[in-house]
Simulated assay, not measured.
Amino acid sequence: MQAADVTKPTRKPTNLSLDSALLKEAKALGINVSRSAEAGIAEAVKRHKQEKWLKENARALASSNAYVEANGLPLARHRQF
């Protein structure tokens, strides 16, 4: 049997405007600027999605927290710790 093919993400050439001194220093240090930029953008997207989810679900979270404060944890009597 052959191993399942792992598909690589499609890469798209993109123009970015970066601080020239920072770019020069990164290249001198052997940093892969494209991969570093991609990692930074991925982290920003992740953070934005988390913040958006928390905003969209704030009422449900507050309601759940209020319930637990008033009634304790559901099924707490079954905890073994």
Results as ranks from 00 to 15, higher is better:
residue 11 R to Q: 14
residue 11 R to D: 09
residue 12 K to P: 05
residue 12 K to G: 01
residue 14 T to R: 12
residue 15 N to W: 05
residue 15 N to V: 12
residue 16 L to T: 07
residue 16 L to W: 13
residue 17 S to I: 08
residue 18 L to P: 03
residue 19 D to M: 06
residue 19 D to N: 09
residue 19 D to S: 00
residue 20 S to D: 10
residue 21 A to S: 11
residue 21 A to G: 12
residue 22 L to W: 14
residue 23 L to W: 10
residue 23 L to V: 12
residue 24 K to W: 06
residue 26 A to N: 03
residue 26 A to G: 00
residue 27 K to L: 14
residue 28 A to Y: 03
residue 29 L to Q: 11
residue 29 L to H: 03
residue 31 I to H: 11
residue 31 I to K: 14
residue 31 I to L: 14
residue 33 V to M: 01
residue 33 V to Y: 02
residue 33 V to E: 07
residue 33 V to W: 03
residue 34 S to L: 00
residue 34 S to C: 08
residue 35 R to D: 15
residue 35 R to G: 01
residue 35 R to H: 15
residue 35 R to S: 15
residue 37 A to E: 07
residue 37 A to C: 13
residue 37 A to M: 11
residue 38 E to F: 03
residue 38 E to I: 00
residue 38 E to C: 04
residue 39 A to K: 01
residue 40 G to N: 05
residue 41 I to E: 03
residue 42 A to K: 01
residue 42 A to F: 09
residue 42 A to I: 04
residue 43 E to H: 07
residue 44 A to Q: 11
residue 44 A to S: 13
residue 45 V to A: 05
residue 45 V to L: 00
residue 47 R to S: 03
residue 48 H to W: 09
residue 48 H to N: 11
residue 49 K to S: 14
residue 50 Q to T: 09
residue 50 Q to G: 04
residue 51 E to A: 12
residue 52 K to W: 06
residue 52 K to T: 13
residue 53 W to N: 04
residue 54 L to E: 15
residue 54 L to I: 03
residue 54 L to H: 01
residue 55 K to A: 04
residue 55 K to H: 01
residue 55 K to P: 02
residue 57 N to T: 14
residue 57 N to Q: 15
residue 59 R to F: 07
residue 59 R to G: 05
residue 59 R to K: 12
residue 60 A to M: 04
residue 60 A to K: 14
residue 61 L to D: 07
residue 62 A to Y: 03
residue 63 S to Q: 00
residue 63 S to R: 11
residue 63 S to E: 11
residue 64 S to M: 10
residue 64 S to L: 10
residue 67 Y to D: 14
residue 67 Y to N: 10
residue 67 Y to I: 02
residue 67 Y to L: 10
residue 67 Y to M: 07
residue 68 V to K: 00
residue 68 V to Y: 02
residue 68 V to C: 05
residue 69 E to R: 08
residue 70 A to L: 12
residue 70 A to E: 12
residue 70 A to N: 08
residue 71 N to G: 03
residue 71 N to H: 04
residue 72 G to D: 02
residue 72 G to A: 12
residue 72 G to L: 13
residue 73 L to K: 08
residue 73 L to N: 00
residue 73 L to C: 06
residue 73 L to G: 01
residue 73 L to A: 14
residue 74 P to E: 12
residue 75 L to M: 15
residue 76 A to P: 05
residue 76 A to Y: 09
